[in-house]
């Protein structure tokens, strides 16, 4: 069965993309979940669409357009909510919509039909070119490196930002760096599930992992495993029944999320009796 699937190069690439992106997703998703910055991450992801439009307009690989654009979005949203007296959700909402608007305008300016645009919005893991695989691998290594170097600082600001500040940490700079890593993770995940659904894969595996973890590193490892599992199962379903791959992965993850919660509720009720 698996053998049959792996005979196709595009399936091998798809599987590799799913596994590689799960690494970034599990590590950064853990921070997103414990620091409760899912909405910010969603904002960064959607703002990134502006970068895709820009890349498309300039005729370069959209990945190259989306990296600087999403990093800019991360820093801007972070600064606006921390420094300017703007309510965080207003800042996020504004960037969210303006980013998408810039993307739409850029695409409209370029004559002709944008065929693979849909795949950036909703993901199409079956068309991942080898160049993108290398890119994902590079971003993975970068994310692992930064998190390894700064794990104690990231733990401190995730747990209690004010205490971290009292301890002498440059919390704003660290927070912005964390948002930048989220932006890079969004770029990594874009190919797999698309920017509209990134937020689900960023949070669901980590949210489930959190229920069974005692430490942050443990949670990361479990989240990576779950993300890989959901991606592989989703990919298999999409291959079997010819479904959209990104959406199937999300539905699989979401179902797992509900099932785990339902199971926990049930066992809690049974225990109480």
């Amino acid at each position: 069965m698996l053998h049959e699937i792996l005979a196709y190069e595009f399936m091998r690439n798809a599987l590799l993309a799913a596994l590689l992106s799960s690494v970034a997703c599990g590590i950064i998703g853990t921070y997103v979940v414990v620091k409760k910055i899912g909405f910010i991450s969603g904002g960064i992801a959607h703002t990134a669409f502006g970068g895709i439009g820009l890349g498309y307009y300039l005729g370069i690989n959209p990945l190259l357009g989306v990296i600087p654009f999403s990093l800019f979005a991360a820093v801007a949203i972070g600064l606006m909510s921390k420094k300017a007296k703007v309510a965080e959700d207003s800042a996020i909402g504004t960037f969210w919509a303006v980013g998408m608007a810039v993307g739409v305008i850029c695409i409209g300016l370029k004559p002709g039909y944008a065929p693979d645009l849909f795949s950036y919005l909703f993901g199409n893991i079956l068309t991942v070119p080898t160049f993108d695989l290398w890119m994902i691998l590079l971003l993975d290594l970068f994310i692992i490196g930064v998190v390894w170097l700064l794990n104690k600082e990231f733990l401190a600001i995730s747990f209690d930002e004010e205490y971290a500040r009292v301890s002498g940490l440059k919390t704003t700079a660290l927070y912005l760096l964390m948002l930048c890593l989220i932006a890079l993770t969004v770029v990594v995940m874009m190919r797999v599930v698309g920017i509209v659904m990134v937020i689900a894969l960023l949070t669901i595996p980590a949210a489930i992992a959190r229920m069974f973890s005692r430490t942050l590193p443990g949670m990361m490892v479990l989240a990576i495993a779950l993300s890989s599992l959901f991606s592989i199962i989703g990919l298999w379903f999409s291959y079997q029944w010819d479904l959209a791959s990104g959406a199937t992965i999300i539905v699989v993850s979401g179902s797992a999320f509900f099932l785990v919660h339902a199971w926990r509720q049930l066992t809690a009720v049974l225990k109480a009796q």
Partner: peptide, 26 residues
């Protein structure tokens, strides 16, 4: 300010008190 469900043990929580004595990246 922190979340009681944060996956962290007492030992690690207390270890965080050492951060003011440490350099970045250490």
């Amino acid at each position: 300010f922190f979340d009681r469900d944060f996956p962290i043990s007492i030992r690690e929580l207390v270890l965080m008190g050492r951060i003011s004595n440490k350099k970045l990246f250490q």
